[in-house]
């Protein structure tokens, strides 16, 4: 490590107003993304992963708002950017791979139009030049017959192909940060592996820093350098990938890992965790979000004010019981 991070998120807090009240979906989230490194974000649905991603692009939905914190991109806070400045950053500096490639493309526009419009938004080039660039990058992604591909419509391609097209579009602008929000969730296992290999290749080739969001620990283990586990809007544990997998400290991380490797062993424990509903985040106090589901919790937990503590070097845990 020791490198200057490209993107630094500090104490990010995001509120979402719902018909039932205000929810703090992201609480005190801090992390760094360095060039050529992959930062993994794990967590169940509703834990705040996607909201964190959207805020990095300044594309939060209307009902969500950053209430505290900063997002430093190359030492400038992008939360202060004007919409036009931010627009220029999107795609060219901070790029995204969407969760579901089948719905991310406009069904009435060809792949070529998607590709060329993106290039021409950020680069002063002609349509012809853009097309040639597109062909070159599609080839790099091992997509067959790239010229033909440009004339095709999204629904004529498989999910895996579309995901690779998306990566090709992303890479053609050589961004310094890539946000990959569940890049493999909508794909089958063969395609998943291929996409992961390609993501790995491009971070090496282009030195791109990747924010890899997933609820699949296998995906994270394969690609990430550092991992943060999110629960109830908090980062509950953050560590280099091997430390996290070898010595999970937070009870939630442990459950997460156990539920993966030990479906037959310790079945009862997992069932217990699932039978308790996930925490209601509306108007919630600053208590541990995992309180209701935690096995190790006792009366001291409910009064405890949560802080992320360094358990050992680079291994941060947000739990009273973890020492």
């Amino acid at each position: 490590m020791g490198q200057q991070p490209i993107l630094t998120v500090n104490n990010l807090n995001i509120d979402v107003s719902t018909p039932y009240g205000v929810t703090r979906t992201v609480r005190d989230v801090s992390f760094k993304i360095e060039a050529g490194k992959v930062f993994g974000l794990v967590g169940e649905s509703g834990s705040g992963k996607t909201m964190t991603c959207m805020s990095l692009l300044n594309l939060l939905p209307d009902e969500a708002k950053v209430v505290k914190g900063s997002i430093q991109f190359r030492n400038k806070d992008i939360l202060n950017y004007s919409e036009e400045d931010m627009r220029k950053v999107r795609g060219s500096e901070i790029a995204t791979i969407m969760q579901n490639p089948m719905t991310a493309f406009n069904p009435v526009r060809t792949i070529g139009r998607h590709f060329i419009e993106t290039l021409r938004t950020h680069l002063p080039i002609t349509k012809h030049q853009a097309r040639e660039m597109a062909v070159a990058y599609l080839e790099k992604m091992d997509l067959p017959y790239p010229k033909n591909l440009l004339k095709q419509y999204p629904f004529q391609l498989s999910g895996g192909m579309l995901q690779r097209v998306m990566i090709a579009i992303t890479m053609s602008l050589n961004p310094s940060i890539l946000i990959a929000d569940e890049p493999t969730t909508a794909l089958d296992a063969t395609n998943q592996l291929q996409i992961l290999k390609q993501l790995n290749w491009l971070r090496k080739e282009y030195d791109t820093g990747i924010l890899l969001v997933s609820h699949d620990l296998g995906v994270i283990a394969q690609l990430a350098d550092e991992v943060a586990v999110m629960y109830g809007g908090y980062i509950v544990e953050k560590a280099p990938v091997f430390k996290l997998f070898n010595r999970p400290m937070h009870p939630y991380t442990r459950v997460l890992l156990e539920s993966r490797i030990g479906l037959t062993r310790r079945k009862t424990k997992i069932v217990k965790h699932i039978s308790v509903p996930p925490p209601n985040l509306i108007n919630r106090e600053n208590t541990c979000p995992f309180l209701e589901r935690c096995e190790d919790a006792d009366h001291t937990c409910s009064s405890y004010n949560l802080e992320l503590k360094e358990y050992e070097k680079d291994h941060l845990v947000r739990c009273l019981k973890s020492r």
Partner: peptide
Amino acid sequence: NEPFVMYARARGLRGRLIVSRHVLKK
């Protein structure tokens, strides 16, 4: 509200272009 609009915005396309080429046609 379709994801393709979100993706178009995430690629940095101008709002006018998204409305005229992406949303209007469909």
